[in-house]
Design a protein around this nucleic acid. Structure first.
Lengths: 191, 191
DNA sequence: TATTATATTGACACAGTGTTGTTTTTGCAA
DNA sequence: TTGCAAAAACAACACTGTGTCAATATAATA
């Protein structure tokens, strides 16, 4: 009981540190960010940092984990509540989230982010959608796995490209494009 | 004249430093590699390092540039000399090179490498092949650009996956798979 | 052999790291 | 309100790595 209440301060500190890192990552890669400047930016004592995280990468990792679990929750919420079963709509919601909602998400998805996180996020999206990509289209299991890897990486690259170039396309267009490249066998099926 | 001959020592030093970095990158990410250990590993004085490169990333970049120009030369050689116009055969040769030839290339393409280098390499391959991916297949220029981005990233991801998992597939199989995902509209066209 | 470019060496001040012990602040409960 | 823990702030520590410099040594070659 005590522990839960006492968390408040801790949680505030962690939040400030997370925001500070994300803010700095907008301007430079994490490799160039020192713990010292991270703490000065957050107005947190450097010693305090060490009582929560062991280094920059540990902190980044905790942000990633948090974001992944948020994404997982968002997707299952979409699937349950709104009875949206179509992959395209889920993709669309994800794109809207990336574009509008989360400061963190934009940085994490950008070139400055961790490519592994991005792959994990998209693997999660596709898997959470319960879709075996192009199932039956290919001869064997190996081919399906290869196609999954190919499509996840292609999708992530497209998002990065989108974010990097100022997001001139709408979320709808992006969802449409990714859907076509990934799921649709016939072009012009949607729209 | 003088300059050319005097290069010898310099070039040796640079080569040793490059090999040293690649060797260390097999065991840890470049972010964890200090200039100090890099020089100790190469048996080169730390001060000497600074007279050639400004830091680890500068050194890595020079390796990447060298590799890219090697790749460019290899491809144009293949295109010119042997009159191989078929994309698939060029892809196959590339995969053989990756698998057999270059120690450096394996590290650069691995997860420990620089993702940007990997994208540059594949963009180069596709462009050098003179292939406008799926030209005319899609409605507009935007769509073609998106498809290019998607396919380059998908290919790079697949290679990484291949290298990471011990290259169980043959170079032929990999060329086949990438060809199908990228160029072929009908599955089972080749083989 | 003398010249010249380069590498080596050791020293320097300086940044950032990770830890420890002490003091201050905070939230909550008696 | 006061007192009690828990957490944060603070200051000091030794340590590692950084970047630069000036003096010296070592090769190749003219």
């Amino acid at each position: 009981m005590k522990e839960l209440k006492q968390d408040r301060k801790s949680r505030y500190t962690r939040m400030v540190l997370r925001d500070s890192l994300v803010e700095l990552m907008k301007t430079k890669p994490i490799t160039k960010i020192t713990i010292k400047e991270l703490c000065e930016n957050a107005d947190i004592n450097r010693s305090t940092f060490y009582s929560h995280y062991s280094n920059q990468y540990d902190l980044l990792n905790s942000i990633e984990e948090e974001t992944l679990s948020w994404a997982k929750k968002s997707i299952s919420y979409l699937m349950d509540k709104h009875d949206i079963q179509e992959t395209k709509n889920i993709l669309l919601e994800m794109f809207k989230s990336i574009k509008e909602n989360s400061q963190h998400l934009q940085v994490l998805m950008s070139e400055k982010g961790d490519i592994d996180f991005q792959k994990r996020l998209f693997a999660l999206i596709y898997e959470e959608c319960g879709i075996n990509l192009a199932a039956g289209e290919h001869k064997d299991e190996d081919m399906n796995e290869s196609y999954f890897v190919f499509v996840v990486n292609g999708s992530v690259g497209l998002i990065q490209h989108w974010l990097k170039n100022g997001m001139t396309k709408s979320a709808e267009e992006m969802a449409d494009i990714i859907y076509q490249f990934t799921f649709a066998r016939e072009p012009n099926e949607m729209k």
